[in-house]
Amino acid sequence: MRRSIQFLLFTAVNLTLFTLLPLHASHSRRINDAELKVQAARLRGLQLTDLCLSSEARYTRHPALADRHAAFQEHPLALEHFPSGSLILPSIPQRESR
């Protein structure tokens, strides 16, 4: 078989996989979302405020409830020393708040 045909067939396979991604995504979403909503309903009473993305520091476990100077609160002159602290920023108040 000509090299060009081989390449076009290879690209056609890749393109098929690429176009199947949205279909797979919408199918999986239907299943996962139902499960997620059941779990969210189960925990609704707890009124959770944050996602559990990282549990290494309290201000990256609950960034929505942390201050902007959260790392500094650990002790005076404290510098950020948790890897996730450089990725997850604390909340940015919309209005003047303490």
Binding site: R29, S55, E56, P83
Partner: peptide, 15 residues
């Protein structure tokens, strides 16, 4: 995201 966390979630995300 894990950093030094011992407890961390498995990111089973809806695509």
């Amino acid at each position: 995201l894990k950093g030094w966390s011992v407890i961390y979630p498995s990111f089973r995300l809806s695509p």
